[in-house]
Design a protein around this nucleic acid. Structure first.
Lengths: 195, 195
DNA sequence: ACCTGAACACCGTTCAAGT
DNA sequence: ACCTGAACACCGTTCAAGT
């Protein structure tokens, strides 16, 4: 009801947007309160008017990364898992940031709710559907976290050896899908055992 | 061949042991180079004679946490997974420390090799056995990481609400085993598909 | 071979005070 | 409602120098 005075300079979304920009070109190690404050053109202490602490700010960044729900009506579990993975991969250190916000209970994952629905549609009972969703979420985040940290290590290590960063690795997306397929097969097996 | 002079005061194992002690009573947030140096009764800079940087020291701590191989001959995948989980749970923030060392390629996981062997014994081909092992490892570490960070958050949050930290949660070990069972079922399904 | 002392370039958070 | 300025109590890492 109160009109915002013109003197109001920034709000939470503006701070989060600045944080996203810092993340994009410096990654999580560069995502300090001081760098974010610089990006907003404000003193560090001003950030604490908008957020109680850094973890709360990171939770808002995480929410931006994982996006809102409502997309992909009626997708199957594998498609939902790949969607989550792609969102995490779209941001530097995305898996690590989301993992920490999630563990601290500061973030709700739309993909988890979608996975629970998908598992129920396949025929799992409520409790089993939640276990299935959590299992898949842990796999996706764990796998992508690992992958992104290795990417980061490769960038750092690139200064050392002048070569050796060639595509000699086992191809990532293929083994992600293979592991995911195993879990999904296990989830389907849980249906037959239950019914 | 050279006898060590009596003036040698500390070696790598002594530093790692000190780090384990700091970890035990302060957790990962308290595990700073200065705290470790204090525990060894040495200046911080002395640690850099033994280890090139903090991550290398943490990798040595990780190796201690996950232990050496040779235990559990002929265990099945689920038993190996539970063994890894128990080792991680035995140390504060064990999953996070190990996860990071692993992702940086600074740690070899005996449990992974054991899982590969177990998967091959069940009848999986080499490539599939490695995918199965990685999938299980990601699940165990992701699940335990999440669980341990929630434990930590509960301790911190205990100062806020005077109650509410009661055993009202869904029981952890049961849902860990349930998720693990789903993955193992999926691994077994991969055998039938392959053969 | 192992360590000291001192510095460099950072951190997150708090708090009185301003507008 | 939103921000400044200054401080507090920390970080990891480097490096010349000692024994």
């Amino acid at each position: 009801m109160h009109a915002a005075p013109a003197s109001a300079r920034n709000d939470k979304p503006a701070v989060v947007a600045a944080a996203m920009r810092v993340l994009a070109d410096s990654g999580l190690p560069g995502l300090s309160m001081r760098r974010i404050a610089d990006e907003v053109d404000v003193q560090v202490s001003a950030l604490y008017w908008h957020f109680p602490n850094k973890q709360a700010l990171l939770a808002a960044v995480s929410a931006q990364i994982v996006g809102s729900a409502s997309e992909g009506r009626g997708e199957d579990a594998a498609a939902i898992a790949r969607g989550l993975r792609n969102r995490l991969l779209a941001h530097q250190d995305g898996a690590e940031i989301v993992s920490s916000s999630l563990a601290l209970g500061l973030l709700e994952l739309p993909a988890r709710a979608a996975l629970v629905r998908a598992a129920r549609e396949i025929g799992l009972a409520d409790a089993a559907a939640e276990v299935a969703a959590d299992t898949i979420v842990h796999y996706v985040i764990g796998y992508t976290f690992h992958e992104q940290q290795r990417l980061h290590a490769a960038v750092v290590g690139a200064a050392d050896a002048s070569a050796d960063l060639a595509p000699s690795q086992v191809d990532e997306p293929a083994s992600f899908d293979a592991g995911l397929a195993m879990i999904v097969a296990g989830v389907r097996a849980a249906v037959t055992l239950e019914v």
